[in-house]
């Protein structure tokens, strides 16, 4: 990462920290520009997170925040013996492994489609984006009713077609996959817009050249389209992964982590132990461990895929 100075330095006052040299005047202006943001985020972003993470080393309880004692690494030791964490990690891993390719494929597919369709383009774009705008309350209530075993529209339909009623959100083997589908459905529109604009930025002459070479549409897609939007794909993939790792609200609203713990994810477990069980100390310890895990995975991926989105 490199931040360039845009002007020939007028002021020659300079100073050095470590091996980097700074222009004094530029530094002062920069800090002044960023100051309101720095101050406010220290107070209202860093400090709350810091305080709640520090509770990880204590026995803090929601109802006894005035009597907190230091317990060292006890909470972390407990975390490594907690069978619920194994379950939550497994569910989250399944969720991430399923939702990422699905949502990635869906958003890319929709973008390719929109890039091709001429008529009603604006309308379609708007339609695909609508689930992004709807609140989770609407979508979860809707899907819970649609997927209901006894009265849901989808089961009614399956039965008309001669199939057997499915448990969906009430079946421990299906519930997580239902949430995968619903999440992808709700999120795909956003990444679709990102892909769409990346597609529109591919120079047209690349395709013309390919047509002359009689490359099929599929070959064009593989050899021109995909390589051209690779940086965008890497960016979308990584943000999607981070989002997927933090899934919490959908299972909380739709299944409450059940049936039989089959949709209990890590973020939801952190929330539950901290808020419902008031065990703030333990909850913070898991949050801290989990943050390390996400950071490792996403930084590792960044390295692996190479397409860093920073200049």
């Amino acid at each position: 990462m490199q931040i360039e100075s845009i002007l020939p330095a007028r002021s020659f006052a300079r100073f050095k920290i470590g091996r980097t040299e700074y222009n004094t005047k530029e530094s002062v202006s920069g800090i002044l520009f960023a100051l309101p943001c720095i101050v406010l985020s220290i107070i209202f972003v860093f400090l709350p997170i810091f305080i709640s993470l520090m509770y990880a080393f204590t026995d803090a309880n929601m109802l006894r925040l005035d009597r907190v004692t230091f317990v060292g690494l006890e909470n972390f030791a407990r975390a490594f013996e907690d069978p619920d964490i194994v379950n939550a990690l497994r569910n989250t891993a399944i969720f991430v492994a399923c939702v990422t390719p699905l949502q990635f494929g869906a958003s890319l597919g929709l973008a390719v489609l929109l890039n091709r369709v001429r008529h009603c383009n604006t309308f379609l774009r708007w339609a695909f984006f609508i689930p992004v705008m709807l609140s989770l309350a609407v979508t979860s209530m809707l899907w819970m009713n649609l997927l209901n075993v006894q009265e849901g529209l989808i089961n009614t339909f399956i039965e008309i077609l001669g199939g057997e009623r499915q448990g969906f959100l009430e079946d421990p083997t299906q519930a997580l996959y239902c949430i995968v589908f619903i999440s992808a459905w709700q999120g795909a529109g956003y990444q679709m817009l990102i892909f769409l604009s990346a597609l529109q930025n591919i120079p047209k002459d690349l395709y013309e050249a390919a047509s002359i070479d009689q490359a099929s549409k599929w070959q064009q897609f593989i050899h021109i389209t995909l390589p051209s939007i690779k940086p965008t794909m890497v960016f979308v993939l990584i943000t999607m992964l981070i989002g997927a790792f933090r899934i919490c609200i959908q299972p909380m609203v739709m299944t409450g982590g059940g049936p039989l713990g089959s949709t209990m994810t890590m973020s939801y477990y952190i929330y539950k132990t901290g808020i419902d069980y008031r065990d703030v100390g333990y909850s913070s310890a898991i949050a801290l461990l989990y943050t390390f895990l996400i950071a490792t995975v996403s930084l590792g991926l960044r390295k692996l895929l190479g397409g860093d989105n920073q200049k």
Binding site: I3, E4, I6, Y22, S27, G30, A34, C248, I275
Partner: peptide, 28 residues
């Protein structure tokens, strides 16, 4: 400021921003 100025802490800030996006903040 982060895009156009070079000042002490600007690099660190960008890294911290990226890291903090990963912290689950439900309990703060």
């Amino acid at each position: 400021a982060l895009a156009r100025f070079k000042f002490p802490g600007s690099k660190v800030m960008t890294t911290i921003i990226l890291l903090l996006m990963m912290v689950p903040v439900e309990t703060s």
